[in-house]
């Protein structure tokens, strides 16, 4: 448990979150959301929640991103905000 690493990850996460909701290209936003989930996994591993991290990596970062990409592919890619 190193607090510098901890804070670094948290900052990454916040930055990813803000970016994900502000990018106008939805595909980009979705991919950034995937990155957000990935950093989240790292944070959880660092906290010792390995099971949760595994699940999040496969489900949150994996399936969720795939679903999002599939949905965005079938619909509009641009967003007005």
């Amino acid at each position: 448990m190193i607090w510098q690493l901890d804070i670094l990850l948290l900052i990454f996460i916040v930055v990813c979150a803000i970016a994900a909701i502000n990018i106008k290209d939805l595909m980009g936003a979705v991919i950034i959301l995937g990155a957000y989930s990935f950093f989240m996994c790292l944070l959880w591993t660092e906290m010792g929640a390995v099971d949760v991290a595994f699940t999040e990596a496969s489900v949150g970062a994996g399936i969720s991103t795939v679903l999002f990409i599939a949905a965005v592919n079938r619909t509009a890619r641009r967003s007005k905000d």
Partner: peptide
């Protein structure tokens, strides 16, 4: 979609 992204976050 942005709403959903927000929901995930």
């Amino acid at each position: 979609v942005k709403k959903l992204i927000g929901m995930n976050i």
